[in-house]
């Protein structure tokens, strides 16, 4: 059913039955190969005026009367192509659970408390060097119904939109050393050798004294079909 995974491939398959929802929601036919000019199609460019003052600070952008509860962290990194070239002006949108592992989404039924001062959504554009930086609260683990006693590792969802269509990626960032990795089929759907690419690196040198811990998460977007210096 699934096309063969090449040795150098870092991507999960479409059909991964341990993650049950893929069974009825993944294409059964191979994706159609298309010519390079289609991969080079542009995507929209968003201007800085789309980004609100606190859109990259999830500890402030939904604050009503006090700081959100939880461990304050900084998540930062670079967006590049496969040749390491920085990609500026890339739209990064993130969302996550609060410190108790509760999503604010209305369809969420996990019995953990909401935090009135935390929404869990943010966005920003990468700078000239492809860099980005969010302040947020470390998300908690949360249970889901994939299998008996299933728990997702702590994670932050990322939606990334670069300026060409092959630079559109949706992924999840995880935290180092999470004991739930070995039980999570979404994380495990990625080939073993590539899983580390989804795990942020703890950066002591980026922490802010008596304020926030820091993690580095770099994002490398597809671009293998293009020559590096055209």
């Amino acid at each position: 059913m699934e096309t063969e995974i090449k040795d150098n491939d870092t991507q999960p398959p479409h059909f991964y039955p341990a993650y049950k929802s893929t069974i009825l929601r993944s294409p059964t036919k191979p994706l159609m190969l298309v010519k390079d000019f289609i991969k080079d199609l542009s995507l929209p460019v968003f201007g800085e005026s789309c980004i609100g003052e606190f859109d990259n600070d999830l500890t402030k952008n939904a604050m009503k009367d006090r700081q959100p509860i939880g461990e304050r962290i900084k998540v930062a990194g670079k967006v590049t192509d496969q040749y390491g070239r920085p990609l500026p002006g890339v739209l990064i949108e993130i969302w996550q659970a609060n410190a108790a592992g509760r999503y604010i989404h209305k369809a969420e039924i996990h019995d953990a408390p909401l935090d009135p001062n935390f929404l869990g959504a943010g966005r920003m554009l990468t700078d000239k060097e492809g860099g980005y930086m969010f302040y947020t609260i470390k998300p908690g683990a949360y249970p889901w119904s994939n299998h008996y006693n299933a728990w997702r590792p702590n994670h932050i969802h990322f939606s990334i939109m670069g300026h060409q269509i092959e630079h559109r990626l949706v992924t999840q960032m995880y935290f180092p050393g999470d004991p739930l990795f070995e039980f999570d089929p979404i994380y495990q759907s990625v080939p073993k050798h590539a899983r580390h690419l989804l795990v942020a690196k703890f950066r002591m040198d980026w922490t802010e004294v008596e304020f926030a811990l820091a993690y580095e998460f770099n994002i490398v977007l597809n671009g293998s079909k293009r020559t590096p210096f055209e």
Binding site: T10, P12, Q82, H157, S159, L169, A194, R195, L197, I219
Partner: peptide, 10 residues
């Protein structure tokens, strides 16, 4: 080349 970041579900 660098390894591309794996995709995950939305």
């Amino acid at each position: 080349t660098l390894e591309t970041t794996p995709s995950q579900t939305v």
